[in-house]
Design a binder for these strands. Structure first.
Lengths: 189, 189, 189, 189
DNA sequence: CATGAATGAGTCTTCATTCAT
DNA sequence: GATGAATGAAGACTCATTCAT
């Protein structure tokens, strides 16, 4: 996508994400977002069709960022175990380092809007899925439906990251290692 | 005078829950809820202080229902494994049989409002917590922080139930057994 | 007027007056008044036709109280000057001792409702008017339209009392004497 | 973009003032004002923060208008007596010629809102206060607290103007002269 | 008779979006 | 192209009053 003004586009995205994290997206009105981005409300509509479109784009962008982040050091030559565990750790690291995007995508995932994007975001998960499929064939990861695997490995790590972000629990390196182990054990043969 | 009408109260609760499940609770306005309950918007305010109060009450009510449901056959004489697995299965069963309450409480849990109720709902989980604590002492469940245990056993079961409800995956008895096994294995020694 | 329950009637009046003084009468709803009076909202309607009627009755009642208070020691044998000055002082005293009634009637006087009661309250002022008329005939008070006399003597004393009540100025005995003198001088030959 | 429309702003102000004068400001709702101004209710909020802000602005505007009007011919070279009496007459003239503003500010002055603006409007009265202070030093006006002077000269003139406006009394030139004399006599040595 | 639940109409205010400049 | 003013529709909530008990 080429935008006339990349700066302005980013300002809007950042304003939206930060505001939504602060006050939830029911309360984050277009005007407030515009004000925080130091832009006219009308200007948002040159970048996005409407509010829903904006949220959706933001979600896709956030998910893409996260997938790139967690996969960036992926090396097919390393063992599945190492790779997978690294990825789990990267999920947590992403939550910490990009907590605005992480919190936003989580909030979005639990809203009714998620149903509008399921298909559009499938692609992002393909590399991960393939990795898992391969590990299943190699008889390392158990031969279970993908949903089950997700729900017992990724999902708990995500949930734990969230709990850490909101201060419900303090996750240090040791606890993270334990969690990663649990996730790994849960899905492996 | 007229006495507070149990029927009307229930009509409001049901209308609220079903509407919120359909359109999310930002979109479920008091007027729309009133209309569905065939009641004046003002009437809702004889039963609840305001919208937030209503949502909170509904959540507490839903969580209580669920806890009672999943614990109803709990028998301390049975083995921990049997008990725990039964509870996991009951969670799924509750999601199926009371999908309105289940979906609503899940939506609530992932909203900012959840922070206002954390304390008020702690009590509901005490029996469950105690069961786990005992199992930890007996060296059956691993000695991990409660959050980790929750996140690797209950949460995945809940998430799976959700996925089933929205048709993302079809969970049959066999798959449920597998899931329950995974949950059990994840947290046991 | 005979009321079934004088106690309840008084409770309502007092609740209404105190609440209205605290929050103004736009904000003082029938329900709030009922709550403060520890009575059902419906009960208020057994004593008053509606809100307007209640306010009007309260006003008349307040004005009557004040007139009785300021005229109570009136003695036609004393000089006009003494009588008049005493009355002025009593106005101030009434404001202090019955500030709830005083504040309420003042608030009412400056509301659009006052136009509905002008006629009904004329009678209350007759004794005072007669006193003034006599003094005019005796060539002690200047022969001016009653409105002018009111506006230059009573009104300033009332206004001063109000300023004192809200703490805008502290009126001590000396200042009161001065004010009473000013009021007297303003209207006398 | 559209520029803020002076016409529309005035329409709102006038609609507000006239409606409030007719039905009082508890009854003058934003919607009714909008309707009279032939504007959307939402539009009012582009000119004012909220209802209170609107009333306050209107009051300040009205008071400013009045002060400018009554002081416009003030000439320090003329005698205090002439100046003061002229000002008293101008007050009455203002009430006649700008009865909408006059009635509105009077209504506002007697509402609880007045306490929010006391400070903001002090400045407007400074020239008048200085004039009085000087006359006190010159031993022309009696050495009394400002409140007393106000209450025995300005307030009666204001009140008389009000009575004239609502038709309670017809104030002709002769009566006005008398009133002005009374006001002057009341506060002078 | 006294009550408190019930309500239609109305309150102020905000929203996503559009339009004139 | 970018803006900020403008708005109809809708938001949560309150009110004076009535009605069934």
């Amino acid at each position: 996508m080429r935008h006339k003004d990349e700066k302005k586009f980013d300002a809007i995205c950042n304003a939206a994400i930060s505001l939504i994290n602060e006050i939830g997206f029911a309360q984050a009105s277009m005007s407030k977002i515009a004000k925080r981005a130091e832009v006219s409300p009308a200007s948002i509509y040159t970048y996005f069709e409407n509010k829903e479109d904006m949220l959706v784009q933001l979600y896709i962008q956030g998910k893409r960022k996260m997938m790139m982040f967690i996969m960036q050091d992926y090396n097919p030559d390393l063992s599945i175990e190492t790779s997978t565990k690294t990825i789990f750790k990267k999920v947590f690291q992403f939550a910490i380092e990009h907590n605005d995007f992480f919190a936003f995508t989580e909030q979005f995932s639990n809203s009714p809007l998620i149903h509008c994007v399921k298909e559009e975001t499938q692609d992002l998960f393909i590399p991960l899925m393939e990795m898992v499929e391969k590990a299943k064939k190699d008889n390392i990861i158990r031969d279970l439906p993908m949903e089950l695997i997700t729900v017992f490995s990724f999902f708990p790590i995500m949930q734990l990251s969230k709990a850490h972000l909101i201060g419900e629990i303090k996750v240090d390196d040791k606890l993270l290692d334990t969690a990663v182990d649990l996730a790994w054990r849960a899905i492996t043969v």
